[in-house]
Amino acid sequence: MKIDRTKAIGYARTHWNRPCDDGVFWITNDVINVAKKRVELKAPASDGWEAMFVSGGSAPGSDPEQAVFRRTVGGVVQTKLIQGWAGLADCAHYLSRCLQAGGIDVNERGVASLVNTLQARRDTKTLAEKVSKDRGQRVVNSGIFKEGDMIGYFNVDPDGDYGRAQSYTHSTMYAGKLDAADPGRVTCHTVARFPGLSWVNDEWSLHDGYTYTFIHFGDDDPPLSATTATALPGWWKVVYGTRTEFYYIYKDGRARYTLKAPTSNRELYAPEGTAYWFQGTGTITFIWRKSGTVETWTATADTREYRISVNGTPGTSTKMF
């Protein structure tokens, strides 16, 4: 089933700074039921109390975020604390609800399980895995990565995220660019973000200490033209800069490369890297999973040759078999 990106982002716009419509939010190893908290804290909706995620304030050492009941009476904002920063952990739950709104059946509470589940789905493509911010920006700028696609944040900072280095500790949904020069924004919970509405930075990279995994829902990718489906699959010799590589391109949108020249039209060699490729108007875009390299092939008059650009370095590709 294709993701309905508009519905997923629409849900995010409504709930980015509020508990999800299932009436709960998650803290470490536990769940908070908002209705029960209303009773406990004497904050009925009928009296105007709204459950929200808000900034903990600007004083030194204040919480980056708190879950509160909030209302405004006579121009004065009143709050009742539901949960302070310590323990808040609602990102995977929130994103599951966003994806469900977009028609994707995902229901995860932990970040690592969300990332693993998404990567294992038949309708997703992991475009790049645990790549740096600079490489990730190329993926975002490729145009292949779209609103509703997902980013996993792999913590590499030994002091970050409670010392959980070398694990997925956060996840977001890509929500597009504010303008052409914008790096791209995300929506998430803990801390709550939505493009242009957040009280913290909502650029997709968030902050240092991460590598990034880009997971793309591929069922709404443009279909292959008959010409491309016939001409592209097989072995290609690719030359750019000082490098010569050999690509084996599959009809289903995958590709692999090796440094050893093939001798027949059979896929013989263990690949150095793998990619997904996407057809555009007169172009083919490859995104290589391990490196985050974005490569564009531009058609020539000869269907057995393309002009290519690998991270901006020009070259050529020639069909071998």
Partner: peptide, 12 residues
């Protein structure tokens, strides 16, 4: 020395 909170769940 007092160390406050951060999004990356710094030790407080």
């Amino acid at each position: 020395l007092q160390r406050g909170a951060c999004e990356k769940r710094c030790a407080v």
